[in-house]
């Protein structure tokens, strides 16, 4: 099928149509400057310039004669890696957004509308209106309600601006409370969940913290150290040698629900549509919560310790309802 190459061609065509007006506005610009501005490789810029310089319109003669083609200062290009457009054809302005492109940006803004950077509601509304006007059709109706990461981000931003550590009480996924001092580096989010990544002075290592597990956050006056030498790992959480392996049973169709646990290959599917899936977890405390939240979908097969912990967790939850007289709705 031609689906994958077609996507590549869409990106390449968009780049060509976007590069022309940019080059028009820049009398002489180096390949490396263009590459950095568009976030692409210098080779891709050179390929695009070569293609543009030999493209044009059929013209009155329908022969693509010289005057009907774009042209560049070839010597500048070949000797100095600079781009100078000397002749333009047909287009001189940036293209509009498609309905889906505008929708992607608008929905992204909606998702981020609770960030301190987005505090000016009127400015955001006018930016969305501008995107709508810049689209060649009504933007697709994809809308996203903003998530509420709370006041934490504004405080963390102040700390980063002042170059100081933050301090908070953190409830770990094992259920322990600890006071943490952290050099904040980056805020990440996945859907509704917000995370802080930074240098944890208690552990002496890079750590990821869920914002909703922090309490009593405050900005200290202890300076942060320069952490530019340390690189943040690509993934929020890293597996470790000490991880435990568990096997769960679930319908094949429900496997995507476990994506956070980076499930290894599933076992063979059965006639009833159920599969056995093995997962690696740091400890069983997170597992029992996940399984109880997917009641009726996921069952722990083994090891027996994980099964027993899950059973006791659910049993203790259920037992709470034996002890009290139900509160009736009046």
């Amino acid at each position: 099928m031609s689906a994958a190459p077609a996507l590549g061609a869409s990106d390449k065509l968009t780049f060509l149509l976007s590069l022309v007006p940019y080059l028009m506005d820049h009398e002489r610009v180096s390949v490396s400057t263009v590459a950095a501005h568009f976030g692409v490789s210098p080779e891709r810029v050179r390929d695009a310039v070569n293609l543009i310089a030999m493209s044009g319109i059929p013209g009155d003669t329908r022969q693509y004669l010289h005057g009907d083609l774009f042209d560049i200062h070839w010597e500048e290009f070949e000797t100095n890696d600079n781009i100078v457009l000397t002749h333009l054809v047909a287009i001189d302005d940036s293209p509009r957004f498609s309905a889906r492109e505008a929708a992607a940006l608008i929905a992204g803004l909606q998702y981020l509308s609770s960030l301190p950077e987005n505090a000016d509601i009127e400015a955001i509304a006018s930016l969305m209106a501008k995107l709508t006007r810049s689209a060649s059709a009504t933007p697709s109706q994809v809308a996203v309600s903003s998530t509420e990461p709370g006041a934490a981000i504004a405080l963390i931003k102040v700390a980063v601006g002042n170059g100081v550590q933050i301090e908070f009480d953190y409830l770990s996924s094992r259920g322990d409370h600890e006071a943490r001092h952290v050099d904040p580096l980056r805020i990440e989010s996945v859907d509704q969940d917000w995370y802080l990544r930074g240098w944890c002075h208690l552990r002496g290592a890079m750590r990821t913290f869920r914002l909703d597990r922090m309490s009593g956050l405050r900005v200290t006056d202890l300076p942060t150290e320069d952490r530019t030498e340390q690189t943040l790992p690509d993934t929020l959480f890293q597996g470790s040698e000490s991880d435990l392996e568990v096997v769960v049973e679930l319908p094949a169709a429900a496997v995507p629900l476990l994506a956070d646990y980076a499930p290894q290959g599933a076992g063979p599917g059965r006639k009833d549509g159920m599969v056995l899936q093995s997962l690696r977890v740091a400890h069983f405390h997170g597992l029992k919560r996940m399984v109880a939240a997917l009641a009726g979908v996921v069952t722990v097969v083994g090891p027996s310790e994980a099964r027993a912990l899950t059973r006791d967790w659910a049993a203790a939850g259920a037992a709470r309802y034996d002890a009290v007289v139900p509160v009736q709705d009046e």
Partner: peptide, 20 residues
């Protein structure tokens, strides 16, 4: 890519963000 064709260089936020 289309936004970049306008030639404006963006400011950087104080705090790094990586929303998904």
């Amino acid at each position: 890519t289309k936004l970049n064709s306008l030639g404006v260089d963006s400011t950087d936020p104080v705090l790094g963000y990586s929303p998904t």
